[in-house]
Write a protein that binds this DNA or RNA. Structure first.
Length: 204
DNA sequence: AAAACGGGGGC
DNA sequence: GCCCCAGTTTT
């Protein structure tokens, strides 16, 4: 943890407006942060609030969101979710997991991001990196992301949930990648079963 | 359980 | 040019 903190800085949503957090998180699905930021900026420079987004022409939404990729799906989801929130939740983003999961384009990970970043509620947004690395390190041994979240919550002190989660994501993006792992740059090889099994023979 | 969705940034 | 992407929905 200390070592990781020297390499990475914590990324958090400075904007805690629940609606913008929700939209930003939907736009971030399966896309890199830079592109997500740009798409979010495009959207909210043009539209002031949920009602303007809900009324926006789909072609215009697609254009603004394009840089994030999956732009047709995402534009449709942004519009759908905005209309649904207006129709069924009085234009407010729900602050509990059950109702969040009913929204189109919102799965476990996105729901957790909203809970954490908009409402400061305890949850761990487990993405593919966190899931993969947790298993790699033997922190958990399960193929189910929900189970990973459960196990991490047991092991990691609550105060560190968000920070550690974020660091694991960045670690997964840069070093402990899905396939091409950069073990030469890794400060944690001494703790890593994967590294030991991969390299112990080569080091002879 | 697997495919589909779609475009960009990094190297 | 190829690799990899802070997933969710549909088949």
């Amino acid at each position: 943890m200390e070592q990781l903190n020297e390499i990475y800085t914590l990324r958090v949503f400075e904007d805690r407006n629940p609606y913008r957090v929700l939209i930003r998180t939907i736009l971030s699905q399966r896309t890199r942060d830079n592109n997500t930021d740009q798409a979010t900026k495009n959207l909210f420079l043009k539209y002031k609030d949920i009602y303007e987004v809900a009324d926006a022409p789909i072609e215009e939404l697609e254009k603004l969101v394009k840089v994030a990729g999956f732009y047709r799906v995402k534009a449709r989801r942004v519009k759908e979710v905005s209309n649904l929130l207006i129709d069924q939740f009085g234009g407010e983003v729900p602050n509990n997991s059950k109702e969040l999961l009913e929204l189109p384009g919102v799965g476990q990970k996105t729901a957790n991001c909203v809970l954490v970043f908009a409402f400061q509620k305890p949850a761990i947004p487990v993405d593919t990196h966190v899931h993969r690395i947790s298993n790699l390190w033997g922190i958990v041994n399960t193929m189910q992301p929900e189970k990973t979240e459960e196990e991490l919550m047991k092991i990691v002190p609550k105060k560190l949930w968000i920070e550690l989660n974020d660091l694991m994501v960045q670690f997964g993006q840069t070093i402990c990648k899905p396939i091409y792992k950069q073990c030469e740059q890794c400060p944690l090889t001494e703790l890593c079963d994967y590294y030991l099994t991969q390299y112990e023979n080569k080091n002879e």
